[in-house]
């Protein structure tokens, strides 16, 4: 079946030939694949388009598949020689070299223990290779990456919710932050790390974020106000 942008699509559907005169490239995002001269759908969801030639399928999946360049939150589960194994929720544990930290040298090893939470970037993510993490940018600076401080709370949610709260249109984290001071690390793998001053505030923010899954952007603002008022009333 041929489909257009904005339609509900199912695996096996074919995208209607986007202007054949257009000689520009076509960029295929998640949920699409090329077969001969056709573009086929591989996951069910809604077909989206951005700009002139970027297509993807919006779907609600929960399993993370590593993508190069994503920033993720992971738990260090093992260390073997000069690499750490980090659980990022994918089918395979990612590796993190001890040299991939700011200022790390062979003599000056970073202080990373098993059980630590790291906020890292995916340097390599291919289906045939082990995913590889780094905690520095290409200038060797750590920026926001690195081992997260102790005393935080880590929780998981669907990948769709992550994309929603990281959307620039979503004011959620900003509104909550105006009244409640907190630190948050949002990983594209569906893991979030949160640190506040008290347990009460942590619970409130976690609940607010998880509830936002089914809300639209304008409804999220009133949800945040509810949460803030409830906290102040206590």
């Amino acid at each position: 079946m041929e489909v257009n942008v904005g339609d509900v699509v199912l695996p096996g559907d074919v995208i209607q030939a986007p202007n054949t005169n257009d000689k520009g490239k076509l960029i295929l995002g998640p949920g699409l694949c090329r077969h001969m001269d056709e573009v086929l759908i591989t996951t069910s969801g809604v077909l989206r388009k951005k700009g002139r030639n970027v297509y993807w399928v919006d779907s609600h999946r929960k399993r993370y598949v590593p993508v190069k360049g994503d920033t993720v939150v992971g738990v260090v589960v093992n260390r073997s020689g000069d690499t750490f194994k980090v659980d990022i929720g994918s089918s395979e544990q990612a590796s993190l070299s001890y040299l991939a930290f700011e200022g790390a040298t062979k003599k000056n090893r970073p202080d990373v223990q098993i059980g630590d939470i790291v906020f890292a970037k995916l340097l390599e993510a291919s289906r045939d290779l082990e995913p590889e993490l780094v905690c520095v940018d290409s200038y060797g600076k750590k920026g926001k990456l690195g081992v997260l401080p102790e005393g935080g709370f880590i929780f998981t949610c669907s990948l769709n919710l992550i994309r929603k709260i990281l959307n620039p249109k979503c004011q959620m984290l900003k509104i909550l932050g105006s009244e409640i001071p907190y630190d948050i690390a949002v990983g594209m793998n569906g893991k979030l790390w949160l640190k506040t001053k008290s347990i009460k505030e942590t619970i409130a923010i976690v609940n607010a974020i998880l509830t936002a899954e089914h809300l639209q952007h304008h409804e999220i603002a009133s949800l945040c106000d509810d949460v803030i008022n409830a906290l102040k009333g206590m």
Partner: peptide
């Protein structure tokens, strides 16, 4: 399988 979002050739 539809709901899991795993890539499929057809249903």
């Amino acid at each position: 399988l539809i709901n899991s979002g795993i890539a499929m050739k057809f249903l």
